[in-house]
Amino acid sequence: MANLADAVNLVETEQTARHRRPLRINWLALAMILPSIIALLLIGLYPLLFALSLSFQRFLLNRPQNNGLFVGFENYATVLNDPLFWSSLGRTLTMLLIVLIVQIVAGIGIAVLIDSSRWRAVNWTVKTALVIPIAMTPAVVGLLGLLIFNRDFGLMNYLLGLIGIEKVNWLGDPTMAMVAIILTDIWQWTPFAALIMLSSLAIVPHDMVEAAKLDTKNSWTIFRYVKLPYLMPGITAFMIIRTADVLKLFDMPFTLTRGGPGVSTELISLYVQRMGFRIFDMGVASAQAVLLLILCIILARAYIHFFYRTPESE
């Protein structure tokens, strides 16, 4: 959930930047937040700087004799010339695009349904149920996926069998294995989108909706011009969080397919892990991680630039 905090911070800095006040330092407040700042620097910034320095060194864990040798941009050159890096990055970005679109659209749909429902008990139950997939450990989700997508005994093929569809070779076929990973991710994270959208819908002023209803009976028009603007900050935050999330998505695919069959589900994080902890080339693995971080920052800035609008600015 640190991601959520980061994203909210980003959104807030954008807001405060617009109405900047003269700087006055509140020493007491500073003293009180100092311990957490120090902790953050230690566990956030230090490893980052360490990885940055590693990325310029030869650092093989299983041949430690010449470790620490400065090699300039050699590790970066290795990464950029590695076709496997590009193919796993491409796979990850394709998956990101698909899950973002599906999760945002489905999330809004679920949120609007709950928001317009009048039964409080149903609302409460659905909201609680939505939290369950998010709260599950990704590694466990992957293990569940192994059972659900098993060709012979799996739940998925059983359900498909009920409507007369032949057994699907989910985990043994390169394309279907990727589909299984995407479906699992959608299952786990659509509820998160729904919850964010639900809280955004809650801040839409009631009188504005009422006023709009006087002008038009078309509920799509009301959604598009009255409600959607209030959803945009939430959507942007969701996109930033999920982008970082998918770029480092590891546990679930690792337990579900381990990147196989072949390289068909090798997402970028699996590849970085493989480089670091199977091939034990920490230098190259760090270079990959640094490049990913840069990509993540660029995407986050792009999202804010293109999607982030406060309702007032519409």
Binding site: N62, R63, P174, G260, P261, G262, V263, R274, R278, I279, F280
Partner: peptide, 20 residues
């Protein structure tokens, strides 16, 4: 030898692609 994990990974990748 220490290089087996790296080698094993390469074999695992192309070995499955071969089978497919």
């Amino acid at each position: 030898f220490p290089e087996w994990p790296a080698l094993s990974d390469v074999i695992a990748q192309f070995g499955t692609e071969m089978m497919l």
